[in-house]
Design a protein around this nucleic acid. Structure first.
Length: 466
RNA sequence: GGCGACGUACCCAAGUGGCUAAGGGGACGCUCUGCAAAAGCGUUAUUCAUCGGUUCGAAUCCGAUCGUCGCCUCCA
């Protein structure tokens, strides 16, 4: 059994065969740091994170690189609006990006290269392209000569002729051909710039990803991921720039994430339906948001709604609930077959990272497990151990949707003491059949976000609100 | 204009030629409970946008129609 997934380059589901046995070299297009990232970006970053973690679940070592684009037109524009240096904007939002990633439970990449730290490599890459006749200089700007790369369009399946006809933007008359694109942009007065053989300037958008990915992962690497919209022109151009220089394939597998819409509309600031990742993670636990994302296949569009998030919150409690219950259970003698479910789970995930189908298997498993666990016989210790281990590997390590510690375990001694006292008082009251008092305690606690459950093993409590 | 994706229950969402069309949410009924909660059980799609076609057999393949969405030079 091996992992297979949709490769944008071939438009088919291809079996994954890494360049080096047991190792995955993966690059995901990171943020341009001119603002906080939004919930659509977050979906891509979370999906990429989960794919990376799933490879690890399947025993691969993964080298995972994500760039930070810290010099770009949008950053410069933002800096000018606020009257601060562009490096300040870049640093502020790069920092925010790393913070928000952490809050979303996204595991850090092995490396976060930045464009401004890779200028020398970018310049030599461009020099190489000029030498090969794949690029040309016009008044301090350098353009990629698309006609020099016959395979141009192989990722996006676009024809150069069609592109010309559909051109929406005024083309720069200095370019030999309208589809040629900038590798190096000469600096306008007041813009940040670096010295180069063609004068002061800065790198174009596409070149940095080519250079950074190849610098850290090699000329040819396994997987390149990013949002759907990056297929053209960004990734198409990356391929052209890279392969024109090296003569070798660039990324072997391309993964693209579907878009997130709000009310079936593309999220945009002008429509007023724009949410930053930061504001959503204030309102919902990261686990809930991740689970919500993962309930839709990564290539499908996801329509983001408040109701959807609420449904995800409720659904997730079932997974967290069984995980916590397994930690607390102490006796039982019925066995439970985890292995079959794990096989089905793996089969689902191996098939194009089908997370919705994977959760389908997990929920079926949880239903059957709960029936035993909460039933008259209870579940024996080895089964509980195996089940908790599998849930840990799938839902904690791969998906990042359930918490290691229950809310009760995370609370402090004083709270524990108070809760124990309240529960003891209520238990006394219940023995005396003082239902009004015991209900008053339970209702009052519920209002402050603590739920009481009377089980046959006594009263349990848990924190329900964040 | 060019290229592409999609339309499955009240909502979300898997399934892409053949076993009863997964799973989550919601709703209703039941078991358990002092009442709840949690958990479980049951009900909620004779049918997959519509109409044709291919096939022994189609939600799945082909064609048309209707509808939704995305990309086409820097938006994940």
């Amino acid at each position: 059994m091996s992992i297979a997934f949709y490769n944008t380059l071939t438009r088919t589901i291809d079996e994954f065969k890494p360049l080096n046995d047991g190792e995955v070299r993966m690059y995901c297009c990171g943020p341009t740091v001119y603002d906080y990232f939004h919930i659509g970006n977050a979906r891509s970053f979370v999906m990429s994170d989960v794919i990376r973690r799933y490879f690890e679940f399947r025993g691969y070592r993964v080298r995972y690189v994500m760039n930070i684009t810290d010099i770009d037109d949008k950053i410069i524009r933002r800096a000018n609006e606020q009257g601060v240096p562009s490096s300040e904007i870049a640093n502020t939002y790069a920092e925010a990006f790393l913070q928000d990633s952490t809050r979303f439970g996204i595991r850090p990449a092995d490396l976060y290269p930045r464009a401004t730290e890779t200028i020398d490599d970018i310049i030599s890459h461009i020099e190489g392209l000029i030498e090969k006749g794949a690029a040309y200089v016009v008044d301090g700007d350098v353009f990629f000569r698309v006609s020099s790369f016959p395979e141009y369009g192989k990722l996006s399946r676009k024809k150069v002729e069609d592109l010309e006809m559909g051109a929406r933007v005024e083309t720069d008359a200095r370019k030999e051909h309208p589809v040629d694109f900038a590798l190096w942009k000469s600096a306008k007065p007041g813009e940040p710039s670096w010295d180069s053989p063609w004068g002061k300037g800065r790198p174009g958008w596409h070149i940095e990803c080519s250079v950074m990915s190849q610098k850290h992962l090699g000329e040819t690497f396994d997987i390149h991921a990013g949002g759907n919209d990056l297929i053209f022109p960004h990734h198409e151009n990356e391929i052209a720039q890279s392969e024109a220089l090296t003569g070798h394939p660039f990324a072997r597998y391309w993964i693209h994430f579907g878009f997130l819409n709000i009310d079936n509309e593309k999220m945009s600031k002008s429509l007023g339906n724009f949410f930053t990742a930061r504001e959503i993670v204030e309102k919902y636990p990261a686990e809930v948001i991740r689970f919500y994302y993962l309930q839709t296949h990564y290539r499908s569009p996801l329509n983001f709604t408040q109701e959807g998030l609420e449904a995800a919150r409720t659904g997730l409690q079932k997974l967290q609930g069984v995980y916590d219950a397994l930690a607390e259970a102490t006796k039982g003698d019925a066995g439970f077959d985890v292995h079959t479910f794990e096989q089905r789970f793996t089969a689902a995930m191996d098939d194009d990272f089908n997370t919705p189908a994977g959760f389908g298997v997990l929920f079926e498993m949880v239903r059957e497990a709960n029936a035993i666990l909460h039933g008259p016989t209870g579940m024996d210790a080895p089964s509980r151990e195996r089940l908790r281990d599998f849930l840990h590997r799938s839902c904690v390590q791969v998906f990042g949707v359930i918490r290691e510690e229950s809310a009760v375990e995370a609370s402090d001694e004083i709270v524990d003491g108070l809760m124990q006292l309240l529960i003891d008082i209520r238990t006394e009251a219940r023995k005396e059949k003082q239902w009004a008092l015991s209900d008053h305690i339970r209702d009052g606690l519920k209002e402050i976000g603590i739920a009481l459950e009377d089980t046959r093993d006594g009263t349990k409590w848990k924190i329900t609100s964040e």
